[in-house]
């Protein structure tokens, strides 16, 4: 792999509070190429904070600091609001857990996708609509012409998430951040959505940051995995080696999940070691 798409060194996010500063993310460093990188952790591990920090979406009074945060060779540190606007949606896109909150409820699906297209690519109205339609096809929506004219509340969960993906990908970003994109979906639907993401990543050579709490999904879908705990990256490994992870936390997390293939009489419980947060 040549130059990484995204290179992050010592990224920290902290929130000043009444009782002192809370570190939501502490000194995270990683590189992302044109690959699927999974970020796994439980609630409060800082995995969502990481996604937001990369998009410059940390709300006030949160403080973001980093030694390096380079996206395709240019630094994201000190970006102005205008710089961010140029990046977001165009070069870096984000898919949230629940499409219900991310789609405008009073606008038709097709118009929303076409608008994104016109905004970021400056294409004409006709062109934008054509692109929107072909994008709906690309996310394997069976009758794109009909879906084009629907409103968000008329879609099922899986359909809504596909529309979100279509909308985020229509501007052909280089990096896609997906924050629990399949957690609200049924397992069978979840795999269809993953298959679409998988194809798009491979065909377009896009980088994907896949944030999830689900070890099974991440280990089967991603190329590499970061394991996060308490705002820190505990370890990084290839997804297929996750079963042989070294860190006691990762091992405990795997042991705690009930598995269909390996029956356990009692599930292992996690004993949290303060050493992990050194």
């Amino acid at each position: 792999m040549s130059d990484p798409l995204l290179s992050v060194r010592n990224l920290s996010v902290s929130y000043p509070g009444r009782t002192g500063i809370t570190h939501a993310l502490k000194e995270a460093s990683f590189d992302l190429g044109r690959e699927r990188l999974g970020i796994v952790g439980e609630s409060g591990s800082g995995k969502s904070t990481m996604g937001r920090a990369i998009l410059g979406l940390i709300p006030r009074p949160g403080i973001v600091s980093a030694e390096r945060m380079d996206f395709m060779g240019s630094s994201l540190i000190g970006n102005s609001d205008r710089d961010w606007q140029r990046l977001r949606g165009r070069r870096i896109s984000m898919i949230m857990q629940d499409p219900k909150y991310s789609l405008n409820p009073v606008k038709r699906i097709g118009d929303q996708i076409a608008e994104t297209c016109r905004l970021h690519l400056g294409s004409s109205r006709k062109d934008a609509e054509k692109r929107a339609l072909s994008m709906l096809e690309a996310v394997q929506i069976r009758n794109p012409d009909t879906v084009f004219t629907l409103y968000p509340h008329q879609l099922s969960g899986g359909m809504g998430q596909r529309v979100m993906i279509a909308m985020m990908l229509v501007a052909e970003p280089d990096l896609l951040i997906a924050d629990e994109p399949t957690s609200a979906l049924d397992v069978t639907v979840q795999n269809e959505v993953l298959r679409i993401l998988d194809r798009l990543v491979r065909e377009r050579g896009m980088g994907l940051l896949f944030i999830s709490h689900n070890l099974t999904v991440v280990s089967s879908f991603c190329d590499r995995v970061l394991i996060m705990y308490g705002g820190r990256i505990l370890e990084q490994c290839a997804a297929r080696d996750l079963a042989d992870a070294k860190h006691p936390y990762t091992r405990a997390l795997i042991a705690a999940a009930p598995s269909l293939d390996h029956p356990k009489s009692e599930l292992a419980t996690l004993v949290r070691d303060p050493e992990w947060l050194k």
Partner: peptide
């Protein structure tokens, strides 16, 4: 359920899906 000794296709699909993503 664990061994996949089930009669319906739907159950089989459900078991398959919950094992995780299968790459093309």
């Amino acid at each position: 359920l664990r061994s996949g000794n089930v009669t319906s296709d739907y159950t089989r699909a459900l078991i398959e899906a919950s094992r995780g993503f299968v790459r093309a």
